[in-house]
Design a protein around this nucleic acid. Structure first.
Lengths: 154, 154
DNA sequence: TCCAATTAGTGGCATATGCCACTTTCATCG
DNA sequence: CGATGAAAGTGGCATATGCCACTAATTGGA
């Protein structure tokens, strides 16, 4: 019998999470559509905004995303003039990021639309529940999961 | 003053969800790496496996993903011979999907590794909590959110 | 029966993300 | 100080996802 049909079977936590992410992502994307920003870009702009000219590595760490992925994601935002980078004064390896005035303006515009979506969401699930969900998600994100290091059989 | 710093400010539910998804995704991806499958592909193979030669639209709906995205995602799996498609007998518009024997074998192999990761996760957060989280995520995914249809100002 | 509207997919284009192999800088240590 | 190893990014390649414009098939009437 399929393992998937065993009594104790539990659905994949990861698949469930991604499914929800796709669903919610579309909602926030729709809300932000008028700004031309994707919800992911909004989140990135926001993260930069609330940081102090963060280094790329710092942003990547905060968002738990691959450094190279961050670099890729940043490109369209730089191309469109919302973000600019500059070398760190003390360590030439470090590249810092900041919003341009245009980026700040775009973020303001986006925050208004985001607020509507966010409100819509919280009205549906309840602010309380939403907060709990975010806390749970943060906990999951920060779990220090590690595979049992496939015990070398020697 | 920044709206983001207002008393009632609540972090973006979507951003939090994506962050957790990236984090957990990497964990499951690592676990499945030996099989050559990404956690997303595993999820897709599994969904096909537990369905009865589902139509593409049916899969897309179940996973709440765009039909075209599903088509794209399916390509590498077809290329590698894990999945095959065939036209529906009654409606030639419909394309059905099924696992090949090779796909079934690969899924079996993946399920074993997935189980380790899943177990690892549940050990950390508790089976109870994990189940609650999945339920909450399912609820979010099925919310039926809609923007207030930006009232045409005329 | 024939055309309009609907349904199911496809392809192209763009962003999202990751991993890996490099290159450039630093930091360390002998 | 020079070799070594670590740290921070970059670029290339591959998959993940979406939207839009189209095409092919069906379904509903008129």
């Amino acid at each position: 019998m399929d393992q998937a049909k065993q009594p104790g079977f539990s659905r994949c936590n990861n698949a469930t999470l991604r499914r929800a992410a796709r669903s919610l992502g579309r909602f926030y994307d729709d809300a932000l559509a008028p700004t031309g920003l994707k919800s992911t870009q909004f989140g990135l702009l926001f993260q930069i905004h609330i940081s102090s000219e963060p280094a790329m590595g710092t942003i990547a760490e905060a968002l738990i995303m691959d450094l190279s992925a961050l670099g890729h994601t940043l490109k369209p935002l730089i191309r469109d003039g919302y973000v600019e980078t500059f070398a760190d004064k003390d360590d030439r390896r470090v590249k810092r990021v900041r919003l341009t005035p245009r980026g700040e303006a775009k973020l303001d515009e986006a925050i208004r639309l985001w607020g509507v979506a966010q409100q819509q969401f919280e009205d549906k699930v309840g602010a309380e529940q939403a907060a709990k969900l975010r806390a749970a998600l943060d906990a999951v994100a920060d779990l220090d999961l590690e595979m049992p290091a496939a015990a070398p059989s020697n």
